[in-house]
Every structure is written in C-alpha cells, then in structure tokens.
C-alpha cells in the first residue's frame, strides 16, 4: 500500500472525474448525434433508451459491488433470463402481481448466495463457480421451458405504465433510487466500506477483523437481490417474455461496471459511475441507428470501450505510483 497517505483525497478527486467524464460523454453524445439527427434527442427516444436499459444499470450496481470486492460474476445474464421467466410464468399463472415481482428477487438472492457460499467457504474462484452456474442456468432454462414465449401478461404487471410526476417512468425512478441508496450504503456504512477493504487488500482487511467469507457471502447475496430487481424491470417492460437468456447480457453488465470506473483490480469504484456507464452504453447503442451505422458494430464498440477504460485505469494507477 505505498502512497496510502495521499490516497483518499486523490482517489476522491479521481472518482468524481470518472463520473463527470461519463456525464460529459453522455451530454456530448446527445449534442453531436442530436445535431446530425434531431429525432435522437426527442423526449420519446430518451425515455425509450432509459426505460429499455434501466435493468442493465440495476444489474450493474450489484456487479460493481462484486468487482469492488475482488470477485466477478459471469452468470448474471443467465440468472436474469431465468428470473424473468419465473416472474412472467407466475404472473400468467394468476399469482398476485406483487408476488410475481417479489419471488424473483428472493430467488435471485438465494441463487447468488449459494454461489457466494461456494466462493466464500470452499475457496473456489468466482470465475469458475459462475462459469459453471452460467451453463447450468442457461441450459436448465431452455430444457425446462423449451424456449416457450410467455404472453397474455396481466394488466397490472407492467411497471412502466406508471410515471412519477407524469414524466419519470417507474423503472427509471427505481434505477435512480437504487443507485442512490447503493452509493450511500457503499460510502457510509461499515459493511459497504468492507467491500472496498476486501478488494483493496484481502490480507489487510482480515487483520482489521473483516471476515472474508462473510463479506463475500454478503456481496453475492446483495448482487443476487439486484439481479432479481433487474429481472423484474426487464420482464415488466416486455409484452412477450421469451424464456431464453438474453444474449451476452452478462457482458453488457460487466462493461457498465468496468466503464463506470470500478477498478479492475478491486478496491475502488462507485455505482453512480456504473449507472452512468449503463446509460452511456445504451445511448451509444441507440445512436448507431440514428446515424445509420449498422447495429452489428455495437458489440465491437462495447469491447473497445472496456479496453479503453481498462487501459486508462492502468495508466492512471501507474502515474499515481499505486503499482509498479
């Protein structure tokens, strides 16, 4: 931990600049693409972008926490696919809508807690556990449902039909509130700080009395809760739920977390950044259409964006002397 003495002030300034950078990038994108094609900045399109991607941002909150603690989860896309199917199935089967919203959240927390237990108590690396779980969930979902489409969802099921103050759709409000709550929790509570401690230096965290196993369990359970909420936001914006795994969703979620400034080496990063990054990625995806670039380039853009952020992060760390 060289440079520990001057780290807090600099780290804070850096964190702010990362988030402002993303906010600036969003504004710049809106302005530039808006000039080329004004329909891009129409309220309706902006609402569509935010509504259609609030679930990515919510999933990225949990993913950020997992990465900050020095772990990774690549099963989140499959889990969201499974939970969305569960939610839709329950709603169509006539369960109260509230339960169709709640059960996936509880289930998500349980599945992730189980994965967390494998990582925390049996010492299996999170990459292996979640890689295995990815195929279990994905294969399990398709073979259990046969990829059947779930339609005729009940009226009260769709969250987006309600708006706050007439302009902010409920899913977007949920995204904002969850981001704010998670940011506050990570910054101001002991449990939240313990994630940074564990990701920054596991041995130092242990000597400070932060149990690794307990913290890892906790972060995976919270991540599962957010994955459940994301699944509900995802499912309730669809008129037909395809009971398959959304392709490469885990990649998009990890991209949002990494581009949002969550350090690849663990220990730093905020969820405000990851939410802004999720919005930026969604806006880039939408803008490709408005400036007539084939959407098939979207994933290449995503990959380049992660790469650029990671390289910038390494460069800054090296300049601050945090690594050799």
């Amino acid at each position: 931990m060289n440079g520990a003495g001057r780290r807090p002030a600099r780290a804070r300034r850096f964190a702010i600049s990362q988030e402002w950078l993303l906010a600036l990038a969003i504004v710049a994108l809106l302005v530039v693409v808006g000039l080329v094609n004004p329909r891009f900045v129409a309220t309706r399109n902006l609402q569509t972008i935010l509504l259609g991607n609030a679930y990515v941002a919510v999933a990225a909150i949990g993913m950020s926490m997992v990465i900050v603690s020095g772990n990774i989860d690549i099963s989140v896309g499959s889990l969201i696919g499974v939970l969305a199917t569960v939610s839709g199935t329950l709603a169509v089967a006539g369960w109260p809508v509230v339960l169709a919203w709640l059960v996936p959240v509880v289930l998500g927390a349980a599945v992730m807690a189980a994965q967390g237990a494998l990582v925390a108590f049996l010492g299996i690396p999170s990459i292996v556990v979640t890689l295995g779980m990815l195929s279990i969930l994905k294969g399990g979902l398709i073979s259990a449902t046969g990829g059947v489409w779930i339609s005729n969802l009940p009226d009260g099921y769709h969250l987006a039909q309600w708006s706050l103050f007439g302009v902010v759709p409920v899913p977007v409000a949920v995204m904002v509130v969850l981001t704010a709550a998670a940011a506050w929790w990570m910054r101001n509570t002991g449990a939240g700080r313990s994630l940074y401690a564990l990701g920054g230096n596991a041995e130092a965290a242990r000597l400070c009395g932060i149990g690794r196993a307990r913290t890892v369990m906790m972060v995976f359970a919270i991540h599962g809760t957010f994955a459940g909420l994301a699944a509900v936001l995802f499912a309730t914006q669809l008129s037909v739920i395809q009971s398959t795994v959304p392709p490469n969703l885990e990649l998009t979620v990890i991209t949002a977390a990494v581009v949002g400034g969550v350090s690849i080496l663990g220990g730093t990063g905020t969820v405000v950044g990851s939410t802004l990054a999720a919005v930026l990625i969604a806006a880039i995806g939408s803008s490709l259409i408005f400036i007539s670039i084939s959407p098939f380039w979207l994933r290449a853009v995503q990959g380049a964006l992660i790469l650029a952020t990671v390289l910038a992060d390494m460069w800054r760390r090296r300049r601050r002397g945090l690594i050799r």
């Binding site: 990774i72 990459i127 490469n248 990649l251 990890i254 991209t255 990494v258 690849i264 080496l265 380039w297 979207l298 994933r299 290449a300 853009v301 995503q302 990959g303 380049a304 992660i306 790469l307 990671v310 390289l311 390494m314 690594i323 050799r324």
Partner: peptide
C-alpha cells in the same frame, strides 16, 4: 501493462465477437 488476464480477455471477448 499488467491488466489482469480475466478482465483483458473479457474485453477482447466482446471486441473480437464484435
């Protein structure tokens, strides 16, 4: 550059497929 293999190859997982 000292980027962890996991993160680097996740980035190129997206990039090469893209």
């Amino acid at each position: 550059l000292g980027v962890p293999p996991l993160i680097m190859t996740i980035a190129t997982l997206a990039l090469y497929r893209g």
